[in-house]
Design a protein around this nucleic acid. Structure first.
Lengths: 234, 234
DNA sequence: CCAAAAGTGTTACCGTTACACCCATGG
DNA sequence: CCATGGGTGTAACGGTAACACTTTTGG
């Protein structure tokens, strides 16, 4: 690398900072994640989370949102900081710390667009993912644990379903993510009992069986209830 | 600053990285935090969390443990990553990102030692703390929220008590941190019912009343139970 | 009319809640 | 013997778990 390129000097060494985004989706009763294929070294050709170096005039949150937009064409979605990974050997280029985020997207938001330094963008079944670049396999484990924990006491599962959904849809979502069977009837009673679902009289047709009613999550009512001490729990 | 001091050059600008530690303690039925008084600019003379710049050859965890040792004389204590703060104006010296940790220490670990760039180290009642340096007041809010949330479903409250403690001690700890009264009898039953306390037949004397029995938390048994799907919950 | 999936109802059980009561200790 | 705080018991209540049953739909 030419000396003229090294324009930024400091009295002490500084690690470089990246932001990486674990993006969850849900389709065909499968938990999915969005990966990008690297078009540059290191790990050329391998799959990794969307992400990149943070800029000097943006927060980590802003960087995550920028990367989601640039590398995956995603905007206005659920995003939350996951953990900051700082192992010394996590990147072969040297000392690079990664602030990881996780995002939840609805099936309708699936507008994909490959960006700079990226060959492809693609959804993968979460349990089929192997050999990710960097320490991304480890980050994925942490992200799944967080999702499993949080979905039980915060209404974030709805962020993975379309604006309108059926109770069987929601039921399958919880069974898939928590990886255990949940009694159908009891699940219905618990969710409906909270009074946070808006009933849209429309119905979703089904191939060989009864049509299921459509609902949507009442965010406004939830915010009000939360302020009075209500706790969402499944 | 002399040019000769600027020895580290990079092709792109890099934010500086610090690690800050929110250290919780519990004494006299009060939740406390450990603060250091700054002996250098910026915020000279103001109180802040122990912390400092990360070195190139250490992880964030290692840096947090080093700072706890150097600035507060604390070793082998509970430590967990809290959140990474990256607001653009959080430090007047420029773009500095902070990876925040929170720690829990027992009263016996209170061996304080002021270090480099520090005038004093002192415990404060958590609700009396005001006007901290940087964005540390905000970090404190986040740390308290985390503690309140985590103490209910992870056995971390014991990290704030001596190795041996009484049930009334534990009861007071929970009431203080959760900021609500908890029925004495029911609390006893729930905790004892988990079978995770070791009964030491010794008793703690009391001024004008009955002596309370001493217990300790059975970490080994907890680890085994956790692996079989047991969930600690208060 | 049958299979498949949606939706409802019933009951036993268990943990929590809200108390009341008894016990040990020191003054 | 009394105040203080430790320790125990109990009955009502409410939510959960397990399961059976009914309804709708398309073939």
């Amino acid at each position: 690398m030419a000396i003229s390129e090294n324009k930024y000097t400091y009295a002490y060494p500084r690690p470089a900072i990246t932001v990486d985004c674990v993006i969850f989706g849900f389709e065909n009763n499968q938990l999915k994640i969005l990966l990008t294929q690297r078009a540059i070294q290191p790990f050329l050709g391998m799959w990794a989370f969307p992400g990149g170096f943070i800029q000097e005039d943006e927060t980590a949150d802003a960087c995550a949102r920028r990367k989601l937009s640039e590398e995956a064409g995603l905007k206005d979605i659920f995003l939350e900081q996951l953990y900051t990974f700082s192992d010394l050997d996590r990147d072969p280029r040297g000392r690079i710390i990664s602030i990881a985020y996780y995002a939840l997207v609805r099936p309708t938001a699936y507008i994909l667009a490959a960006g700079l330094d990226i060959d492809a963008v693609q959804w993968f079944d979460v349990d089929e993912v192997r050999d990710l670049a960097f320490d991304h396999q480890h980050i994925l484990t942490v992200a799944i644990e967080r999702l499993k924990g949080k979905i039980r006491y915060q209404p974030i599962g709805f962020e993975l379903l379309p604006e309108q959904f059926t109770l069987p849809d929601l039921h399958k979502l919880y069974e898939t993510i928590l990886q255990r069977s949940i009694d159908r009837g009891n699940f219905r009673k618990k969710i409906l009992g909270m009074g946070l679902l808006i009933d849209h009289s429309s119905k979703q047709k089904n191939r060989h069986a009864r049509a299921a009613k459509m609902y949507s999550f009442d965010k406004v009512k939830y915010q009000k209830l939360k302020e009075t001490g209500f706790y969402f729990e499944v």
